[in-house]
Design a protein around this nucleic acid. Structure first.
Lengths: 159, 159
DNA sequence: TGCAACAATTGCAAAGATGCAACTCATTGT
DNA sequence: ACAATGAGTTGCATCTTTGCAATTGTTGCA
């Protein structure tokens, strides 16, 4: 991509970008908020991690969540009780426990991402083809300039 | 704005938009995460509302937060104790209590928004002037197509 | 004036998140 | 075989969020 880096962002373009980006954040917020009727935000974060990284050993998952193992064990108790995840034996070692999404848990995550996609598609459909094309190009360059947002960071807000 | 509505969004542009939203979320998450060392997310949301709407009567604020008044009163207790907000007498009625940000509370919010602006500026600075201009226009048309994201919704994410 | 409506707080209570220390098994290495 | 280490769980404790019911003042109105 061409990055001429021919300037710095003036105050105004920052404000404009920030303001305009609120719409996009609104989409995300709406999609997540429905899930929060079912699980808490910390719990939803767990679902997100399991969804994107697959089944995982207890300790590893706790570490990813920046939680103390004991704390986390009981959080998982609650989530198991809620039917969102399940504990299964590890094929590697009998002292390890693997946490896996149940179909219910997966459905909840899917519902959120699906809602998000759907809503974005809806908004895009209200734009002209030209506008979409321009937007797409602009967002690509923005994403590239921004770099990868680490999964770790996104987790703070539940994706 | 011209909305020809001459098509539907293809899968690809949806994905691109989704990716960009993650980059944006990364910015938001990073900016907020430091504040979360000081206050909880629900508490930070209170600070956000006070920051954007100014001092507010107890009951009104509780309503905005979708909290029951009694619940909220105690949340405010903790925040007062933490030094983030203060209760002041209402000039209108002696039975009303106004909640106002302390300078500490305001500083916390400012710090977050400042960090966010800074980071956006940084990203924009890695783009060419042309790209920035195009991005702004594109985001504006996206915002228009999306409609207002209610402050209510954005609050889920802490702005 | 006196009562009903209003604003906020307090009493009580349940559920989650979180942390430290102790404990139970399983595994590894000597 | 046994001690040391590793993985999870349980005991115990605290703090925050959240809700319902009852209480204390205030205000408005008949």
């Amino acid at each position: 991509m061409t990055t001429l880096d021919d300037g710095y962002a003036d105050r105004n373009s920052v404000e404009t970008t920030l303001t305009a980006s609120r719409a996009l954040l609104g989409v995300v917020a709406r999609s997540v908020s429905t899930a929060l009727d079912s699980v808490t935000l910390p719990q939803f974060r767990v679902l997100i991690v399991l969804s994107s990284s697959g089944p995982m050993r207890m300790g590893l998952l706790a570490e990813r969540m920046h939680a103390v193992a004991s704390t986390f064990s009981r959080s998982i108790d609650r989530m198991v009780h809620g039917g969102w995840v399940e504990r299964i034996d590890s094929p590697d070692s009998r002292r390890e426990v693997i946490i896996r999404l149940t179909s219910l848990g997966r459905a909840l995550v899917d519902e959120v991402t699906e809602r998000r996609r759907h809503e974005i598609a809806e908004i895009l459909s209200r734009m002209s083809q030209d506008e979409r094309t321009v937007l797409q190009g602009a967002l690509v360059s923005f994403s590239e300039a921004a770099g990868e947002a680490s999964a770790e960071e996104l987790l703070v807000l539940g994706l």
